[in-house]
């Protein structure tokens, strides 16, 4: 057995330890990028091996908090992929207007930019007051930031450009106030957003949705976990409801793919058939 195989055993044991001690299940995440992030933490903490890391995380909760932040990639943006939001406005919003009440789920919402973007669109389209948005993530630290709705001002230029390219009808500056080096999102945007803790690898259905967005989360999962999550979405959507994935994610490798039809292929917008 060579070093790489031995390290794989250590990795499996480490993930098992995290699961048993803290309840986070990373065992079915794509290994290649997970390893990179764990090795990064290993170097940063000056630890000798994954076994040493396992020992540390079992006894040191603060260490685990740091590791958890590494392991949940929270990179996100307002109106990320403007062409997606443009397609959403054009093909999905008109269909949603046929309902008197809407439920929308952002699964893996990170620090909330995606949910705030949605809130802005819904306001502009006159749908916001009749909508409940559920924004969930497994990472409680990041959810706290999401609830605050305060973002670094250095991102503002890009967010404004994204908003404009995504078909925004107003001036983006209507939706925030600048405060030193931060921008605070308009309170009224979060009135109908419920931020809460939900782990896609463990937790189940919590309501019937008209639209689910799960963008740039499935790429971190192996096929088995992707299948589990897509089944969970299938079970959480009513007939004719919409599912939106990230621009490199698709339902085609999954067992539930027959149940969906493409609405806008390049933007990964799907609709549940039955």
């Amino acid at each position: 057995m060579n070093d790489i195989e031995t390290q794989n055993i250590e990795l499996q044991l480490l993930l098992q330890a995290i699961y048993l001690k803290y309840g986070y299940d990373f065992r079915n995440y794509s290994k290649a990028s997970l390893k990179r992030r764990i090795n990064h933490r290993l170097l940063k903490e000056g630890l000798e091996s994954l076994s040493a890391m396992q020992h540390k995380l079992l006894y040191d909760v603060h260490f685990f908090d740091r590791l958890l932040l590494d392991m949940s990639i929270n990179v996100t943006e307002m109106f990320r992929d403007p062409s997606f939001y443009l397609a959403l406005r054009k093909y999905v919003i008109p269909k949603l207007k046929q309902h008197s009440f809407l439920k929308i789920w952002h699964a893996g919402c990170s620090s909330g930019e995606e949910a705030y973007s949605m809130a802005i669109i819904l306001k502009e389209e006159g749908l916001y007051d009749n909508t409940q948005i559920y924004a969930t993530d497994m990472n409680e630290v990041i959810l706290k930031q999401a609830k605050e709705g305060i973002f670094k001002i250095n991102k503002l230029k890009q967010y404004t450009a994204n908003y404009q390219k995504s078909g925004g009808l107003e001036s983006f500056s209507n939706y925030y106030v600048a405060h030193y080096d931060h921008v605070v999102m308009d309170k009224s945007l979060k009135k109908n957003i419920l931020f809460s803790d939900h782990n896609l690898a463990i937790d189940g259905v919590f309501g019937e949705m008209n639209l689910i967005l799960c963008r740039n989360v499935l790429i971190y999962f192996n096929s088995e976990l992707q299948n589990r999550v897509l089944k969970l979405f299938f079970d959480s959507l009513g007939k004719d409801s919409f599912l939106c994935l990230g621009s490199k994610e698709s339902i085609y490798f999954s067992k539930t793919s027959d149940a969906f039809k493409e609405v806008v292929k390049e933007e990964r917008i799907y609709r549940k058939l039955y």
Partner: peptide, 21 residues
């Protein structure tokens, strides 16, 4: 590799993408 994504090889010799830093 697609622009703006890292490209990685999994041990089962499939490709995966990430938007890590």
């Amino acid at each position: 590799a697609p622009p703006n994504y890292h490209l990685l090889i999994e041990e089962d010799r499939s490709l995966s993408l990430s938007i890590d830093k």
